[in-house]
């Protein structure tokens, strides 16, 4: 039994190493005083981070990404609130089919979605830019947002609403006083996850972004120039840090929501 346990443990360690070692290499090389990404390390420097400040295109890409991710998060979450509320509270004809179609982009190859959207946008003569990226990202983020919010609405006891109504509140004030506070952790969690997904999405942004590069598109374009690679490493290090912080916040709110409504934790994305 013991040796078998050790074998499995070794497997688990290798698996995790394979998953995370490359990511740990990013910060290591971003502080390395040399343009070639190879061991041995040359020495410690922060000049690559300083150099980030001088890249105007990088700044524009970051701004683009923030606009896209911010708008996407708000749009996707808003749409998802309606969809999740409708699917958990009401019965209507074709509900299963409608929900399945909304959730489909979750498993559809993104490249197909990207090509399809591109073809249609070009046919319609719509100019490519940030707006089109936002629309595309909303499409792929909404299923995630719905999954998170459905769980939040699902764990809400219907009689809570009825009780508030019974005690004299109207439909709207019941939503504001009871439903919203109880699903708020889910909403925050949905905003953060949508933001993170949009932030590092590449295929759609590259296909339908026109001449407005988002951060991932900019990073990819810079990889052709070997001397730019250390700066990209620095950018990537910052991105990893921000992503981790956002995901931790999202998970915190999701768990708090579960605890508050007294529900059972059925596992989230983390």
């Amino acid at each position: 039994m013991k040796s078998q346990g050790n074998g499995l443990r070794l497997y688990a360690i290798l698996y995790l190493a394979f998953l995370y070692a490359p990511i740990f290499l990013l910060p290591i090389f971003s502080f390395n005083d040399g343009t070639i990404i190879a061991f041995p390390l040359k020495g410690f420097t922060t000049k690559w981070f300083a150099l980030m400040a001088e890249k105007g295109q990088l700044h524009q890409a970051v701004i683009n990404s923030l606009i896209v991710a911010g708008s996407t998060a708000i749009l996707a979450t808003t749409l998802a609130i309606f969809a999740a509320r409708a699917s958990t509270r009401f019965e209507f004809r074709g509900k299963g089919a409608i929900m399945a179609m909304i959730m489909l982009p979750l498993v559809l190859p993104e490249i197909i979605v990207a090509m399809a959207i591109l073809v249609i946008l070009l046919q319609m003569g719509v100019g490519l830019g940030l707006t089109t990226i936002i629309l595309g990202h909303t499409l792929i983020c909404t299923p995630f947002a719905i999954a998170i919010l459905s769980a939040a609405f699902q764990s809400l006891d219907k009689s809570l609403e009825e009780a508030a109504y019974d005690l004299g509140e109207g439909k709207f004030s019941t939503f504001r006083l009871i439903i919203l506070p109880l699903v708020l952790p889910g909403i925050i969690s949905s905003l953060l996850i949508s933001f993170t997904i949009s932030m590092d999405e590449f295929i759609l942004a590259a296909f339908i972004g026109g001449t407005s590069p988002t951060l991932p598109v900019y990073i990819y374009s810079q990889l052709r120039f070997p001397k730019e690679i250390p700066v990209i490493m620095a950018v990537a290090t910052c991105l990893v840090a921000v992503s981790i912080v956002l995901l931790i916040i999202a998970e915190y709110f999701r768990r708090r929501g579960v605890a508050k409504t007294g529900g059972k934790d059925s596992g989230g994305f983390l």
């Binding site: 006891d157 009689s159 809570l160 009825e162 009780a163 508030a164 019974d166 005690l167 009871i178 506070p181 109880l182 508050k260 409504t261 007294g262």
Partner: peptide, 14 residues
């Protein structure tokens, strides 16, 4: 002019 005590009690958890 009625009020209800629900089977699940429906206490507002927050």
């Amino acid at each position: 002019p009625t009020n209800m005590v629900f089977q699940s009690y429906a206490i507002f958890p927050h």
